[in-house]
Every structure is written in structure tokens, then in C-alpha cells.
Amino acid sequence: MHGLTNRAIQCFVTDRYGLEKWAECARLADIGFSDFESMLIYEDGQTTQILEAASAVLNRPKFELMEDLGTYLVSHPNTESLRRLLRFGGVTFVEFLHSLDELPDRARLAVSDLELPELELRDQAATQFSLSCKSPISGAGHVFIGILRTMADDYGALVTLYHLGSSQGVETISISLIVSEYSEGRHFDLGARL
């Protein structure tokens, strides 16, 4: 798993729960070091180990924690650049949903060895979608629920999201758009300097 993914987990635990909790997670996961480097590649198993350790240390169910991780990724000031990159996907929430198919390709343009989960959006009706998510890390769909819920707020859309379970490594999320312009949402300045 790419260092960026592991580093994201580390920053999430550190920013939300503090350095000491992270140190505890790293010890419990027995990965042999305490800091992930964002530009190095690690064994997939280490990512799972660290997630399970975090679940134990923070005393929270793993999938719930992964959903929080998704929320963190697109709402914390430290990860503002990620929210911005996702907002480039479209002007409305539906356009953003449609851009998810090409998210792994977009990521590869920026960092050629970054493998994101394979995503596929299906339109079932004008306001009903499903997103399938294939990843070597079990529970990746829950991270996307957190991301989608927060991005909907960002666009000012009101949605309901359900994790429909997983089969053969593919997790499916149901997305119902209730109101597309429910609130103002957050401003997106195309030319902002970070």
C-alpha cells in the first residue's frame, strides 16, 4: 500500500487522538517503526495491521473508524489540498459522483505509483446511485462513505448513504440524493493559493 495511504491513517490518528495514541498504535501493530513516509511503498499487510491496532487502541469498531478517516480526509484543515483536488471533479455533487470513476487515473497522473481502490459509479435513477469499490484493504468502502458524506456537505447536497456489504473483495455503497442544493455548501475557489 502506498505511503500516502498509510500516512493518511497516521495523520488521522495523530490529528484526532494525539501523538501518544499513534505511538501506541504503531507499537501494537508491530510494524517496526513509528512513522510512515508518504512517498515510499509498504506491504499491504501493514495497513491492515495498523487499522486493527488503531481499532483496539482507540476502542472503536474498525469500520466506524474507517468512516471517520474518510471524513477526516476531506474536512480537516491539514488535508485541505485533498478536498480541493476532489472538488476539481465537478461543479455539482452529481458531477463529482461521475468523476469518481476516473479518480484512480487522476491520482496516477499526480503520483504514478499510487493505486487507489477501483471505483465504479452506476446510475440507477436520476437521484439513486451505487458505487462499487475494489481494494486490497477490507473496509475501504467505509472510508468512501465518510468521504462522500462530507463531500455532499461540501457541495451543499443532502444524501443518504448505505454500505451494502461486500462480495469477492468488492464493496458496494448505495447513494440516494435527496436534495442537490440543500445548503450553500463550501466555497470552492479554483485559483486559491494553498
Binding site: 512517498m39 489540498s81 480541493r84 483536488l85 476539481f88 487522476r106 491520482a107 497522473l109 499526480a110 503520483v111 479554483l190 485559483g191 494553498l194
Partner: peptide
């Protein structure tokens, strides 16, 4: 292109 400029700068 703007996306790439930002993404590459972050990377």
C-alpha cells in the same frame, strides 16, 4: 491542468 498543477505541487 489546474488539477494537475495542484496535485503535482502537493506530491
Amino acid at each position: 491542468m489546474l488539477y494537475l498543477v495542484e496535485a503535482k505541487s502537493a506530491a
